[in-house]
């Protein structure tokens, strides 16, 4: 198997008190890997480490491709339209405006954002803003998305639309690692669910959902929730 993401014994916060890990994980092209775990397990820290944003990281990790970290807060600049927000990473790198907009329209098409490009963030729904945040990550040519709680704060319709957008991206070969508490929802698109427990236990269990039907996927999600409740000390 040709791995796009590979991490071995990754520990965040090394040297002091570890805040995440150890984690050993792999993801292949177009795969959707969900990381679940109790609060304080270090899920976000692990994601930030994979994105190269964390300090004091120990262990091995490698991403074959261009990663984009999509934080829980959409971090859209409120004085720019959604289109300009998506184009922003390209424009600050010197990409000509016309070329930047061509690429913006490309990723916006993938996520169903085209009708919203001229809106300001405050004029857009939570789901649209989240998709714009994903599009901003993709526009620079990212082929690995590291998404932190992408469904948090969204209503049912927005969650469904975002889920569909992510499924379409996976079909285009984009690899995704999702950190989420919304396991029932995430189980609908996940290829695997990994359970991360607070250090020193780290990544402790792995469930494959490939080839499973909807009911079986929900069953696995329930099992993961039970494991987290049991092992997380609740």
């Amino acid at each position: 198997m040709d791995w796009v993401i590979e991490a071995r014994n990754l520990v965040v916060g090394a040297g002091g008190t570890p805040i995440s890990g150890p984690a050993t994980l792999r993801a292949s092209r177009g795969e959707i890997v969900v990381i679940a775990g109790p609060n304080g397990a270090g899920k976000t820290s692990l994601l930030r480490a994979l994105a190269g944003l964390a300090d004091h990281v120990e262990g091995y990790y490698h991403i074959r491709g261009t990663p984009a970290y999509i934080p829980q807060s959409d971090m859209l600049l409120p004085w720019k339209t959604l289109g300009d927000n998506i184009a922003f990473p390209l424009l600050v790198r010197g990409t000509p405006r016309r070329e930047a907009w061509r690429r913006v329209e490309g990723v916006a098409g993938l996520l169903g954002l085209k009708p919203h490009l001229s809106k300001y963030p405050r004029e857009a729904s939570g789901g649209t803003r989240r998709k714009a945040s994903v599009a901003r990550g993709l526009v620079v040519g990212a082929d690995v998305l590291l998404l932190d709680e992408p469904f948090a704060g969204l209503d049912v319709a927005a969650k469904g639309a975002l889920l569909e957008g992510l499924r379409r991206l996976a079909g285009e070969g984009i690899t995704m690692v999702l950190v989420t508490h919304d396991l029932l929802l995430a189980s609908r698109i996940a290829d695997r669910i990994l359970v991360l427990l607070p250090p020193p236990r780290g990544l402790s269990a792995e469930y494959s959902l490939r080839g499973l039907g909807k009911a079986e996927r929900y069953g696995v999600a329930e099992e993961v929730v039970e494991l987290i409740t049991r092992e997380g000390g609740f």
Binding site: L53, A68, Y69, P71, M75, L77, F88, P89, V92
Partner: peptide
């Protein structure tokens, strides 16, 4: 965090953010 994610220089961070 956005500045770090996009690798903005101090000048870019000042001008754009």
């Amino acid at each position: 965090e956005l500045s770090r994610m996009l690798g903005l220089s101090k000048t870019q961070e000042f001008a754009h953010i």
